[in-house]
Write a protein that binds this DNA or RNA. Structure first.
Lengths: 110, 110
DNA sequence: TTGACATATTCCTATATAGACATATATACT
DNA sequence: AGTATATATGTCTATATAGGAATATGTCAA
């Protein structure tokens, strides 16, 4: 069996770094395909295809304005990734306390 | 060109759902390969291969105990994903205020 | 050393890309 | 209608899987 399709979920769609760049670029304001092409220095067909994948998994929304297609990031679709990574936050807290403990131990040494 | 290797970074490694399951399973305590096989109901070679990928990108740590290999999740390697998803948090806050605004507007209506 | 247990690796195959290039579709303008 | 602009899609290719089956490697125990 091959890898799961890039359009199977947000995790797979976001695995590609260009697609993450596009999502970053579209996070604050909607942009046309041409703007993405110019802004990120990618080939137009490549951008269109990446947008297609992102659209299929709901990571971007589109609206048409004349002959321009305006895309914007749909942050809600990223939220599940955030939630999943968050489940490991506990360990970082532990790390923090470990660092703190070390710092305190060092302080006591003097 | 094909997709980036699963071992190229945490994003690609984590795209596979089984690997996420394994990371969840190993988040709180270290476990042997056999325990993972039994706990998640996967084939042993499959688990070994997934662990290999996770190990290559630093998502798990191993130590040997007799003939058992004890794996545990290295949460620090997940942190970059968390940080990236977090950059979109702003939009969720906006959503929150939008919901709040709506709720307040409804309250005023009465 | 031999056997049993635990884990890793190899080989094979169907499948899915991402990029480059060419081309199709859609819309606006004259 | 005809042309220019903007975007999407199709084709081709090299590459990388994930799963299954078989097998190799490593470690302990008698």
């Amino acid at each position: 069996m091959a890898r799961a399709a890039t359009t199977s979920d947000a995790f797979n769609a976001v695995a590609e770094s260009r697609r993450r760049e596009i999502l970053n670029y579209l996070a604050l304001e909607e942009r046309s395909v041409g703007a993405i092409v110019a802004g990120l220095g990618l080939e137009q067909p490549s951008v269109s295809k990446h947008l297609r994948v992102l659209r299929d998994v709901g990571l971007v929304r589109v609206r048409r304005n004349g002959r321009h297609m305006l895309y914007r990031t749909n942050a809600d679709a990223i939220r599940p990734l955030h939630e999943w990574t968050k489940t490991f936050e506990r360990s970082w807290v532990h790390q923090w306390s470990r660092i703190k403990e070390r710092a305190e131990a060092k302080g006591k040494q003097r």
